[in-house]
Design a binder for these strands. Structure first.
Lengths: 139, 139
DNA sequence: CTGTATCCTTTCAGATACTG
DNA sequence: CAGTATCTGAAAGGATACAG
């Protein structure tokens, strides 16, 4: 292995764990121009994680998603679903029936991502109460 | 195990994977009032993930963090660090020297979280290029 | 070097009303 | 049922200047 760039602590070390996003290694997630930044923003948008995880096991209908994810507005549900669908993480199926029925489910890509998300959300669920219960000026 | 609530597909199934945040099981991450929502918002804030992962291996100084995380403003770095510190994920150490030196490193809690974040960021790094390169009206 | 304070712009997000 | 359109207020975020 040839090392050309100067070793720069975290950036390179974590970079080697994550791997560069571009084959030439010019960009990783710490670079502002990196596409992984865009995707990360989509996923970590206010509702992205919750929608994906809600679809972990099931195909859900629009109304089911809306009821499952407490507090989401129709606007944000539609908006986030569109982004997720465009990222090929969620698949939208329209049944040409009256009344209309639309199903949402994860793509293979989405399911793959979901498996990374579940442990994260599990950790948050377990530790959230402890974190929030020590508010020293918390937002 | 006593089941009192009607089984509601994803909400309960994923809920059983994640576990309830409150011991009485009244709230999980899908509930808007759940504290895990707050913590999740902190972590998935625009810069939260990046800061935590940047500190994965190293203690970093303010300036190092600023240079590592490309594109972050001083304001957002300070703001996000304060939230993370308050959540007991990041530890701030002030050395009383001139010129001033301040170190940031992960707490045990933060390191634990970081281990859930690395696989996620790794996945994003590997798949981002493919996702972004198929823009059918992408934002 | 490590931040704060201020101003300003952009984006997010909810409420409401409406459509096929 | 499954959305869209529009409006409005709140919040996030960035640039710049300044302070200890």
């Amino acid at each position: 292995m040839t090392i050309t760039a100067p070793a720069k602590s975290a950036r390179d070390r974590v970079g080697s764990v994550l791997g560069p996003t571009w084959p030439d290694g010019t960009a990783n997630v710490f670079s502002s121009a990196c596409p992984s930044r865009t995707v990360l923003d989509h996923i970590t948008s206010k509702w992205g994680v919750l929608i994906i995880v809600a679809l972990a096991d099931d195909t859900l209908r629009w109304g089911e998603l809306r009821r499952t994810i407490d507090g989401i507005s129709e606007k944000m549900l539609a908006q986030t679903l569109r982004v997720l669908e465009n990222d090929q993480l969620v698949l939208r199926t329209v049944h040409g029936t009256i009344p209309p029925r639309v199903d949402y489910r994860l793509t293979d890509l989405g399911r793959d991502l979901c498996e990374k998300l579940i442990p994260l959300l599990g950790w948050v669920s377990q530790n959230a109460a402890a974190i929030v219960s020590t508010p020293r000026g918390n937002a």
